[in-house]
Amino acid sequence: MATGSNRYATRADTAVLAACVVVSLVVLALPAGLKDPIAGALRRTVLYPVLAVQRRTARSAEERERLTAVRAERDSLALETTLLPELRGENARLRALLALGGRLGHGFVTGEVLHQTGVADGLTMVLSVGRRDGVEPYSPVLTARGLLGLVRTVDARTSIALAWTHPDFRASAVVEGTAVYGIVRSQPGGRSGELMELVGVPYREQLLPGTRVVTSGLGGVFPRGIPLGTVQGTLTEATGWERTYVLRPAVHPAEAGHVVVISPARAADTVAAVFGSGLPGPDSVLVVSDSTGVRLLPAPPAPRRRPRPRLDTFPPAAEPRQQEPPGPPPASARRPAP
């Protein structure tokens, strides 16, 4: 790697360095209103072919990894098919009893996270879907495990999402099954992408470790019921005022491959039933496409495991928003402060 020249820098070199540093600092100091159009123009021109290559590579790698899972699913389905007529009849009866509508296969698109190098990856992410796919700014981004972030800027074929690890990210949260509300953010000063904080919890509410925290639906950005994380313990207490809890996040940006981008129009929906009572494993996402749209299915369950719910079971958009405080909290979720 050595070169033939052994001359040190001349004054001209130093002047060019100073000019480049000044340009960098000017770019750094630009307001967001100017940075975003410049970045978008670069993504649409210079970076477009390389991001297309990366998108194709990511998709190909993902498909290869899922091949084994698909084979297992095929075998499992072949066995389950024998019970299909009976289950179908039972499902129809139950749905009629509950007055449920049909499944909605719309309102979201799936894409891939195009991970980049550098320290900023994990705080912001490049998604392989953009305006042409129906992505809009402020669309929630999630995986089968929980909330990943929020779309910040949208180009024609790509978009930039703000991960929950970003210092600017906030989400209104509620403790599952209770009326305990708070704000979730990344833990400032904590290890990047490792932990969340639930702030603003009333002092009288004491949460037990393991309690699940989901989006509250307040604010009109995130649908209600998307898992954010589980309580690990108390971080701080402002005596008589509020408590701050540390959460183990449901999903880490570095793990994210396939993501679901939900339309902001569905922010009023409730998706709690989609995620069920337990967080699915990291290998639980499988994307399929059909003529009616793109659907996200749980990966084929391992033998002797409980099947997971499907993500395409959103309630109809016209369904009234379920924002009323739920019933009395279960004793296992919280306990009164002493």
């Binding site: 060019v16 960098s24 770019v27 750094l28 630009l30 970076l47 912001t124 490049v126």
Partner: peptide, 29 residues
């Protein structure tokens, strides 16, 4: 020459910053 290294670094950095616009300019510097 070092000057060309700086110029190429600036250009590559700005392009890199386009995929992380919240810190636009940091990679360039």
């Amino acid at each position: 020459r070092p000057a060309w290294g700086a110029v190429v670094g600036l250009l590559v950095g700005i392009v890199s910053d386009a995929v992380s616009p919240s810190a636009f300019g940091a990679a360039a510097l």
